[in-house]
């Protein structure tokens, strides 16, 4: 099922904490640069897809413009660091604030749009930001991109080894999941679900559409920007092609859809499936075939399991006991 208000319970919490602790230990076991790097990439995409899911799953608008927020996060912290020597740790919040504002505006203006109209509006918004990133060369150096100088040190989120990025990425993912859970348990969560289920009924119960959607969009955008800052600090080079480009928006949505739109952990599971497949096929087969795999994966998932892997698993879980009962009767 798509997001329902979360029920309290110690079991999921304990399980979540266990997984979190196990993930903390990963860098002690995985020391190979390729695999740890892959793991960090998975964490980042998991965070991105989880953030996307707050507007895509909870608020019900399938966005194809989230690369804009990712780019805003990456460029804000990087430019603040390069131009004003402000640490990306602070730039993180500056980028989050700007993206949050942009998300609020986008949420407000796309409020009444449904289905394909919403998708096209977010797509256009993403392209606007991309065109700005490519062409405002005085600020962004355009397609040449920006390099973060080596040796900025931990105070500037720049580390020599990969391990710190693993921990930051893990923190980022934990934050986005925690925010998702908090929203689900809050007033806002109930309102968003009510609006998604039936907007007219929700409004007549006193739910204010504008507030809810703007807030959800802003939170989603802010978290996406955090991941952008993280990406910039991790790769230490950004350009429009790797941050604001349409393909990035597609991939964010793709990861969430494969895992399960509207499920709490689906986007993270999606990243665990999609990113390794993508990275490994890219390494073995090259960029074109890797993206072909993405295309096929996207088609197959949306046709066969529109609620993603998690949705399909829930469906299976729902069927199993029934089948056992049936066989007992037979």
């Amino acid at each position: 099922m798509r997001f329902r208000p979360a029920q309290e319970g110690w079991l999921p919490l304990a399980a979540g904490l266990t997984v979190f602790i196990l993930l903390l230990l990963v860098p002690l076991v995985v020391t190979d640069v390729f695999w740890l790097g892959l793991g960090i990439t998975v964490l980042m995409w998991a965070a991105l897809a989880t953030a996307w899911n707050i507007s895509g799953g909870l608020a019900g608008g399938l966005s194809l413009g989230h690369a804009a927020f990712f780019g805003i996060g990456a460029y804000t912290s990087t430019l603040l660091y390069l131009r004003l020597d402000i640490s990306p740790w602070i730039g993180l919040f500056a980028g989050g604030a700007i993206a949050g504002l942009a998300g609020a505006v986008l949420g407000a203006i796309t409020l009444r749009l449904r289905g394909p109209f919403f998708v096209l509006a977010t797509l256009a918004f993403g392209i606007v930001i991309h065109i700005i990133a490519v062409n405002w060369r005085d600020l962004t150096r355009g397609s040449a991109g920006l390099v973060l100088p080596f040796g900025g040190g931990p105070a500037n989120m720049l580390f020599a080894g990969l391990e710190p990025y693993w921990y930051i990425g893990l923190g980022l993912l934990a934050l986005t999941i925690a925010v998702t859970l908090a929203i689900q348990r809050s007033r806002l969560g109930y309102y968003l679900i009510a609006l998604r289920e039936d907007e007219d009924a929700a409004r007549c119960l006193g739910v204010r559409v504008v507030q809810c959607k703007v807030l959800a969009s802003a939170i989603s955008a802010m978290l996406t920007a955090f991941a952008g800052t993280f990406y910039a600090a991790y790769i230490q080079y950004i350009d429009p092609a790797s941050t604001t480009q349409f393909e990035i928006s597609v991939q964010i949505a793709l990861v969430a859809i494969v895992g399960g739109v509207g499920t709490t952990l689906g986007p993270a599971v999606g990243a665990l499936i999609v990113i390794p497949i993508g990275e490994i096929s890219r390494a073995w087969l090259g960029g074109g075939p890797a993206l072909m795999v993405y295309g096929v994966l996207l088609i197959v998932i949306v046709l066969a399991a529109p609620r993603g892997v998690i949705g399909a698993l829930e469906w299976l879980a729902g069927r199993l006991p029934r089948r056992q009962k049936a066989s007992r009767h037979a």
Binding site: R2, R4, I193, A194, E197, D198, A201, A202
Partner: peptide
């Protein structure tokens, strides 16, 4: 009627 069908 307009229940929020997916909710309890």
């Amino acid at each position: 009627v307009k229940p929020f069908g997916g909710l309890t």
